[in-house]
Amino acid sequence: MAGDLVLLTGSTGFLGYIILTELLKHGYRVRAAVRSQTKAKRVLAGPSIKALAPTDEQLSFVTVPDMTAPGAYDDAVQGVTYIIHSASPIPSFGDGEPPAQDQLEESLVKQALKGALGMLESAHAKAGGSVRRVVMTSSTVAVVPFEVYMGQGTEPDRVWTSEDRIPVAPGPYGFEFQAYSAGKAAVLNASEEFVRTRGTAFDIVSITPSWIFGRDELVTDAGGMRAGSTNSVLLGVVLGVKNDAPYGGNAVYGPDVAKAHVLSLDPVVKGNQSFVLNSMMDWEDAIAIAKKYYPDAFAAGKLREDGKQPTMALKWDASKAKRQLGLELAPFDTMVKEVVGQYLELLAAEEGSK
């Protein structure tokens, strides 16, 4: 409840930063685990955090240089009532060199498992029973077989739900997204097993979103928006990127995902369950949406109409989040307007500084 202390991981990432602002708006005290104080300063420089101007009592930082090391969170969990674990290795999305193929399992599966299970172990064994709930950031790729995303074994009429579970696909993995999917499934399955078998004082809630889009305040230049996060994939559609492989046609607004994490802390919400968050969309609709809001950018050649991104339709039942959390999900229109708008703002600022 408001005023309780929440340990948050991943606050230096796209989603984690939005969760942090949402926690502060709801009156929680936050202890953010970061790899370094340099990263903490980056968070404090974010516009929303600066506007909220939290005191040291409201927002503090704990340095955890290696979140996969044994006992990494032993000190961080002291006195904590809730934990939100949003930190996890993600695909590179064009930002730098991806891991070598023979390192995919270590980078995106084993590291994700070590971080999540290490967190749960610390909460169970070192927090003195203070932790009441752990909210984990999962993904829809954790509950749908990877082959479905590759267009194999699809069931057009099937409706996927938050209760679906899949076995972890074994390695070796051919590319990042395949390993990332396996890592998400491994963490979801193992974390639920941990709570079932270890007699923990806390329960667990998993938030299971699809593609997450929205303003990223930690990105401060246009180039940073073109690589490094899910936003870069959406932006590519209106920048003329052409891709022949279909992507799942489901998306969710970043602030909605953050709200789901924070609302799930409420003891009124039943524990040991998960919530799917997504809405149906067509990737190439982003072009018409962007043109509606930013026609001048197309005329000036800053945006393009020839992007290609086929859509694979996957049906989901996300109604539980609305029923239990009271969450109304924003439409794809909102996501496109915000992401493209931020990109054009940054581009204009760079052009104006020349």
Rank of each mutant, 00 (worst) to 15 (best):
W160A: 10
I19P: 05
G224L: 02
K259E: 10
L52P: 08
E328V: 10
F146M: 05
K308P: 01
Q324P: 05
P91D: 05
L8W: 03
H26I: 12
N243P: 03
G94M: 03
R226T: 10
I287D: 02
S210P: 00
G128T: 00
S86I: 02
M225F: 13
V257A: 14
P145V: 12
F175E: 10
I18E: 06
T38N: 14
T220N: 12
Y28R: 00
S88T: 14
E155F: 08
P209S: 12
N250T: 11
T220A: 09
A2W: 11
K41R: 15
Y82S: 05
Q37R: 13
S191F: 10
G223W: 10
F61Q: 07
N278C: 15
V219A: 07
S162D: 13
A45H: 13
K259H: 08
L314A: 11
D317M: 13
L117R: 06
G13R: 03
A348L: 07
N278R: 11
S139C: 06
H85S: 12
P98R: 02
G174C: 07
V219H: 04
S232T: 06
V141I: 15
K291H: 15
A123F: 01
Y149K: 01
K270G: 12
E328M: 10
Y73S: 06
V276A: 15
G153E: 08
A33Q: 07
V159R: 14
G153W: 08
H26L: 12
S92E: 09
Q111N: 14
I19G: 01
L344H: 07
G271A: 13
M119Y: 04
A251T: 14
A142E: 08
Y294E: 03
S319M: 13
A72Y: 09
A51S: 15
K25R: 15
L52Q: 12
Q101V: 10
V252H: 02
G174V: 12
S353M: 12
L344P: 02
P246T: 08
R196V: 10
A51G: 15
S162F: 03
K291N: 15
G79N: 12
A125V: 13
G153D: 07
K126S: 07
G96D: 11
